[in-house]
């Protein structure tokens, strides 16, 4: 499973622990679909996304649209640098509407 359930300070969330690319797109779609069908409210961390490409972005876009359609609360959290870059490049931050917080660790490096 590329998506694992995590708990931080008593809050449960899901973490994508794989690359989000054309190679994993089919699998990701399946797993995220399962997840969405079971949960009414879910937070997905993108912190551990090791790579993201256009196919991955498509998945995120579609998942977001689907959640809206089904009336479910979906939030992407903990965007890592690479994800932020891609969303910025494609000007999609506003589309997802999730607050993007720069990881503290990276902030320190910066």
């Amino acid at each position: 499973m590329s998506i694992v359930t995590r708990e931080l300070n008593g809050v449960h969330f899901f973490e994508i622990n794989d690359e989000l690319t054309i190679y994993t797109a089919a699998m990701m779609k399946q797993e995220l679909q399962d997840l969405l069908s079971k949960q009414d409210e879910l937070e997905i961390s993108l912190e551990k996304v090791s790579d993201i490409d256009s196919a991955g972005v498509q998945i995120l876009i579609l998942l977001h649209q689907q959640a809206e359609k089904k009336g479910k609360a979906l939030r992407f959290i903990k965007h890592n640098r690479q994800v932020i870059d891609v969303l910025e490049t494609l000007n999609l931050e506003a589309f997802f509407g999730d607050p993007i917080v720069l990881p503290a660790k990276e902030f320190e490096y910066a």
Partner: peptide, 23 residues
């Protein structure tokens, strides 16, 4: 200066083929 990613003609989740490009 500006980029718009078209998201409105994406297929619905069920019909989406993960390896097809809709962008």
């Amino acid at each position: 200066v500006e980029i718009i990613t078209f998201t409105h003609d994406f297929p619905c989740w069920e019909d989406m083929e993960p390896e097809s490009c809709y962008l």
